[in-house]
């Protein structure tokens, strides 16, 4: 009984402190002044979201923002699709050296193919995406390429994501049972057929959850394109905020938009993950016993190291 009281005190006290922090922040945000002034300020700063800016006739607020959202999603989807293609290509190039795939070429050729791919993957993956975006944008004209900011941005996103996906795909391929490769060779499939009918279909299926979480990462990362003047979601909200003088409110709204999209996507990814890569029932039960509602989340390969793939398959934040 005493214990239960203690628990409830901690729980309610902690939550109350949390809520109080927000109430206090909200109260301060619209200060100084008496309550009437605060309410008036509150209304004025939230008005742009339903009334628009100025007299509200120039351009509908949400049309303006909506176009940015479409651009954001477009950039993310184009990049992920391109990266899927180039990522697979890079992974296969890197794997030419691997004896398990038996790439039909002399050793020298296999190394000549895999070494540059490996270098590229490691270099790009180790550099900050933000740097790559700026670099592409600034360097492209100096190379005589007339790229729009959006294209430069998509190029950088694709370059980076391809290299990240290449490692995921490589790990996915290597996670397949050795017998699969041997069986494919035994029935005399050519290299291409082996990949097309045996290796890639299985590997890709295992990688669907990582793909989706990579898409979430990409949607977040497209906000970096705002720095190179692409008028995607974040940049549009940023511009509006400068005219409406409501940075906090705008950033909150921006956060909500990104959150809704990404949370939906990552919940979806998590649901996909429950299938084959699930950690044994014992640990799921352990978490349940500890009172965690969402046991499907207990999955990453880190758990007990039972995962089949290496660290590379994890999508970085």
């Amino acid at each position: 009984m005493r214990k239960r009281i203690l628990r409830w005190t901690i729980g309610i006290g902690g939550s109350a402190a949390f809520v109080a922090l927000f109430v206090w922040a909200g109260y301060r945000m619209y200060g100084p002044g008496d309550i009437g002034e605060r309410v008036e300020r509150f209304q004025r700063r939230w008005a742009p979201f339903y009334k628009g800016i100025g007299d509200g006739t120039a351009l509908n607020y949400w049309t303006f923002v909506g176009r940015g959202l479409i651009l954001t999603l477009e950039a993310a989807v184009i990049s992920i699709l391109l990266s899927l293609f180039f990522g697979t290509l890079l992974a296969l190039l890197r794997l030419t050296r691997n004896p398990r795939l038996r790439f039909p070429a002399p050793t020298v050729v296999r190394y000549a193919l895999s070494a540059p791919a490996t270098t590229l993957i490691q270099t790009i993956r180790s550099a900050p995406l933000f740097l790559l975006i700026l670099y592409t944008f600034i360097a492209a004209p100096k190379l005589g390429l007339q790229l729009t900011a959006l294209r430069a941005g998509i190029f950088a996103l694709t370059l980076y994501t391809s290299c990240v996906l290449a490692e995921i795909i490589r790990a996915g391929i290597l996670s397949l049972d050795r017998g699969q490769f041997e069986a494919a060779d035994a029935i005399g499939l050519s290299y291409v057929k082996k990949l097309r009918f045996v290796v890639l279909p299985q590997a890709m299926r295992r990688m669907v959850p990582s793909m989706v979480s990579q898409l979430v990462t990409l949607i977040k990362d497209t906000s970096l394109l705002s720095i190179i003047t692409v008028t995607e979601l974040y940049r549009r909200l940023y511009i509006i905020q400068q005219q409406a003088f409501n940075p906090i409110e705008t950033f909150i709204v921006a956060g909500v938009i990104y959150f809704v999209i990404n949370f939906a996507l990552s919940t979806f990814a998590r649901r996909l993950e429950v299938g084959p890569s699930r950690v044994g029932g014992a640990s799921a039960a352990a978490v349940q016993g500890l009172g965690v509602e969402d046991q499907t989340l207990v999955v990453t390969e880190a758990a007990a190291g039972r995962g089949r793939t290496s660290s590379h398959s994890r999508t970085d934040p």
Partner: peptide, 12 residues
């Protein structure tokens, strides 16, 4: 914190 862009959090 996982589902919103870091850039946005920085600006915030």
């Amino acid at each position: 914190f996982r589902n919103t862009p870091l850039l946005l959090q920085m600006s915030f």
